[in-house]
């Protein structure tokens, strides 16, 4: 596998695979700190506050303080919960989001597992999250947790359909499900990114609207997939206290939280890979070496994480019926039409 520098460096043995698995874990940990700070700061700026200012310079050490606080909190397990399932659920949820990092292409030289079915794989492992949330909600033995879990599961299952359509459209456009191949198809500057019709003759501008629609459908779906506002009805504080993690505290709550942030990065990097050229530099071959690619990839993905945070603090929560209306009656028809358009384009494309 030439797409992994660790294997080149240390050879094909179990230790290099362990190193490959640990790198994304370290990345997620660092990223979660940055994202928590981003969430706190952006929330405050949106609401015209200063946000955390006292820990470190302008409060940049706040996420570290939060982590230390969560680590030393008492681990409360309520008496009437189903203990084994209650303790497993946070880990299952986190496995679901962390497993997706196996196929995230940080650079052309570093993708933990260069699967041929990468795009489909990310989509499949997200179902672990659904099971974990159901597990947590049911085992908490609390009606709010249960309602939150059921809401979350039904929401994630419904939104998978339009998201799957946009993934299929990208798969037809690049005739591959391999993350690196999809990105390689978009080489040559931002004009060749899939959001602008991908690699092809000038006729592609006719089909840009279809891809734009697919991007919007996918992005809305990804907000629902990660249970972020405006689709955070599974944890709607005003209706069902805290949703599926009502009974969780301390480190187990932190696992749910961590999984949510990891998931935000996963969907953002998927948006980046599918529509914004992944690790490709926006200026063609300029700054397109494996190390700059990491920078481009992370900056693009972080931008979409920022958009998610930004949306969370600007939009109100939708109602359950509106949620279902949006998926089935708005997003699905648009996704179908856009999919047909993109399929037609990839048919006539030279």
């Amino acid at each position: 596998m030439e797409s992994n520098f660790i294997l080149e460096l240390f050879g094909n043995n179990i230790w290099s695979y362990l190193i490959i698995a640990v790198i994304p874990l370290g990345f997620v940990t660092l990223y979660a700190l940055v994202a928590i700070l981003g969430e706190l700061k952006i929330a405050s700026w949106v609401q015209d506050r200063l946000g955390p200012m006292r820990t470190g310079w302008k409060g940049v050490l706040q996420p570290l303080a939060e982590v230390i606080k969560l680590l030393q909190k008492e681990d409360i397990t309520p008496t009437n919960v189903n203990r084994p399932l209650f303790n497993t659920a946070p880990f299952v949820v986190f496995i679901g989001s962390f497993a997706a990092f196996a196929v995230i292409p940080f650079s052309s030289k570093f993708i933990p597992a260069d699967l041929n079915v990468g795009l489909f794989y990310i989509f499949a492992v997200s179902s672990f999250g659904v099971i974990g949330i159901l597990m947590g909600g049911w085992s908490s033995n609390n009606k709010y947790s249960m309602l939150g879990a059921i809401r979350s599961a039904s929401q994630m299952i419904s939104y998978e359909i339009p998201m799957a359509l946009s993934i299929i459209a990208i798969a037809t456009l690049s005739s591959s499900l391999n993350m690196n191949k999809i990105i390689e198809m978009q080489s040559g500057g931002f004009w060749d990114w899939n959001i602008l019709g991908g690699n092809g003759p000038i006729l592609k501008i006719v089909f840009i609207p279809f891809l734009l629609v697919l991007f919007i459908v996918y992005f809305i779906g990804s907000l629902a997939e990660t249970n972020r506002t405006p689709f955070d009805i599974p944890e709607g504080e005003s209706e069902i206290v805290g949703g599926y993690h009502t009974e969780y505290s301390g480190m187990k709550f932190a696992m749910f939280f961590f999984a949510e942030y990891a998931n935000m990065f996963v969907v953002s990097s998927l948006v980046t890979v599918m529509f914004f050229g992944g690790w490709q530099s926006p200026f063609g071959s300029f700054l397109n070496d494996p190390i700059s690619q990491v920078f481009w990839f992370v900056i693009k993905a972080m931008f979409f994480v920022f958009v998610q945070i930004w949306l969370r603090w600007t939009l109100p929560r939708v109602r359950v019926d509106q949620l279902m209306y949006i998926t089935w009656k708005v997003m699905l028809p648009f996704a179908f039409v856009a999919f047909l358009g993109v399929a037609f384009w990839s048919m006539i494309k030279p």
Partner: peptide, 10 residues
């Protein structure tokens, strides 16, 4: 994973 975990198990 997709069908059994995401569909049938749910």
């Amino acid at each position: 994973i997709m069908i059994y975990v995401g569909g049938i198990l749910v």
